[in-house]
Design a protein around this nucleic acid. Structure first.
Length: 521
DNA sequence: GGACGGTGAAACTTCAGGTTGCCTC
DNA sequence: GAAGTTTCACCGTCC
């Protein structure tokens, strides 16, 4: 249903006017934009024009405080979000730390926050409806063509957030922004009255096909090329494109690769195919066989090269799985390149020539690995954001991917009997998970101890589990807090009760000192 | 005369997002 | 290609 809506045009910014109108109606709004920066900037523009009062203001003040201190140390992004939240607006995108994302979502659901400016993250897999949905951007940067219109399906996904049936509201509004009459007509034609795109099969994309071909062989569902073709002939891809010739060609080529990489082997008569032990593991790990082979090749080089933490970090950074990589600015290109030269003796991947298409990606992989190296040397999120322009949420996403690839590398190293590397990778994974230096590894084995508490303990001369056993419970409580102290002691086999540690008011104002009262069994 | 702050134009950057594994000293 | 951010020159104000 199309409807005419009158909104007071107080400012030149249409989004702002519509949002203010929504607030006047005591309703909530979602604003969809095409980039993280835009989401932040739009939320700031709105926040600047809204002044909450009374109870609302108090609740938002508290919320702002919570958002600000969600991380170890507030980043520039945290401060920006906290400032917006004070006015009842927020931004939401994949660069937000998961804790903050959750806070924003929950606060919008319970009505504390009135406006969220978001990238498409919010439209998918998240039930967060609002009275009004404002779709500000209908174009998005998509290389190599530049700005291009978003799919109709995505537009519908946005609009689907309008109206809150769960709250017994049977009405909602979705609004697009057009600057001219022509633009308005185009939007009506393409998005409002238009048909959504057909759904296309992605099966013919090689990395996906490679993975499926190997897995069908590994689980012994297919043991010949005929069986494979029979299987793929029944897929949506074959149904959609009618002829399977192209598919047959690709499968043939893939079987060739898989054999070269020693993931499959043929029977003597060349009719039956089966997965090797290595191939089975690759399939279980859900690895793209291409990546698996790349990792193995790199690690073999590791037997003759110098091994550093950087070696493995760069190895996983240069996989397809980790893309898109951190971008290298013109002003920092030289610096990254010189780091690359300096570290070349410990880099396991093959450096492309400067004229290779992939050279830029390679330089980016160096920067990405440098960021991870900083992380495991306890650089905080604020500094990472400044130095690498990577947001806390993106940090987590990259680290999770790197961990998965390192785990896979470790498993492949086991099968390939590369003993020397296994331990190094395992250590690196723990450091990557916590963002901690090697000296903290013994303490990180404890539950509820991450980089922050481990570092605090280390500074207080508690360096391993023996020290944890020996340390006076009161002292430990002073470092990590009472509850955690009891928990940690329990983990090293010492049972303490709450009454064993008493809190005594210190002499200095605002300071508490804890004293041991008695020792556990 | 110098420190400081506000302003605006030009130069420079950057551009959505998600799934996969597991027991381990 | 467009929006957002950073940089820098310029100007006025205050001490």
């Amino acid at each position: 249903m199309k409807k005419t809506l009158q909104v007071e045009m107080k400012y030149a910014n249409s989004v702002l006017n519509i949002v203010l109108d929504t607030l006047k109606l005591k309703k909530q709004a979602l604003v969809f934009v095409n980039s993280k920066n835009s989401a932040e900037a739009e939320a700031e523009r709105i926040a600047a024009k809204v002044k909450p009062e009374g109870e609302d203001a108090l609740a938002l003040e508290a919320l702002s405080e919570k958002v600000l201190n969600a991380l170890e140390k507030p980043t520039k992004q945290c401060k920006r979000l906290a400032l917006c939240v004070k006015s009842g607006a927020a931004f939401h995108h994949a660069g937000l730390h998961s804790k903050q994302r959750e806070i924003v979502e929950d606060s919008f659901r319970n009505g504390t926050l009135k406006v969220i400016c978001a990238t498409p993250t919010l439209a998918y897999g998240l039930n967060l409806p609002a009275f009004r949905v404002i779709v500000r951007d209908l174009k998005r940067f998509a290389p190599p063509r530049g700005m291009s219109p978003i799919p109709v399906l995505e537009f519908l996904q946005f609009c689907g957030r309008a109206g809150r049936p769960d709250f017994n509201e049977d009405y909602g509004e979705a609004i697009c922004i057009a600057e001219t009459d022509t633009e308005k007509e185009n939007i009506m034609e393409r998005y409002v009255d238009g048909e959504p795109e057909d759904i296309l099969s992605k099966l013919a994309v090689e990395p996906i096909l490679r993975t499926y071909v190997l897995s069908l062989i590994a689980i012994e569902y297919c043991n010949s090329e005929e069986r494979l073709m029979e299987f793929f002939g029944k897929t949506f891809y074959a149904h959609q494109f009618q002829n399977t010739e192209r598919l047959e060609e690709i499968i043939d080529r893939i079987l060739g690769y898989l054999e070269d990489w020693e993931f499959i082997e043929w029977s003597e008569d060349g009719k039956k195919v089966s997965a090797t032990l290595l191939g089975q593991r690759v399939s279980q790990l859900y690895l793209d066989p291409y990546t698996a082979n790349y990792l193995i090749t790199c690690m073999k080089r590791g037997e003759v090269k110098m091994i550093r933490d950087f070696s493995f970090l760069q190895m996983v950074s240069y996989t397809l799985e980790l893309r898109p990589l951190l971008t290298v600015r013109a002003s920092e290109y030289e610096r990254i390149e010189s780091e690359m030269v300096e570290k070349s003796s410990c880099i396991l991947s093959m450096e492309p020539t400067m004229y290779d298409d992939d050279y830029d990606e390679y330089v980016k992989s160096i920067k990405t690995a440098l960021f991870m190296l900083d992380w495991i040397n306890e650089v905080d999120e604020e500094t990472l954001l400044e130095a690498y322009n990577i947001r806390p949420g993106e940090v987590r996403a990259k680290l999770d991917l790197a961990d998965w690839l390192l785990y896979s590398s470790e498993e492949l190293a086991k099968l390939a009997k590369m003993q020397g590397l296994i331990k190094e990778i395992a250590k690196l994974r723990v450091r990557l998970k916590h963002g901690a230096k090697e000296e903290l590894l013994p303490l990180l084995k404890l539950k509820n101890v991450g980089r922050v508490r481990a570092r605090k303990m280390y500074q207080n001369k508690i360096k391993d589990l023996e020290d944890v056993k020996k340390i006076d419970p009161g002292m430990l409580a002073e470092i990590v807090g009472k509850a955690i102290a009891i928990d940690i002691k329990k983990q090293v086999g010492i049972e303490l009760r709450d009454s064993h540690i008493i809190v005594k008011k210190g002499t200095r104002k605002g300071q508490m000192s804890l004293h041991k009262y008695g020792k556990g069994k």
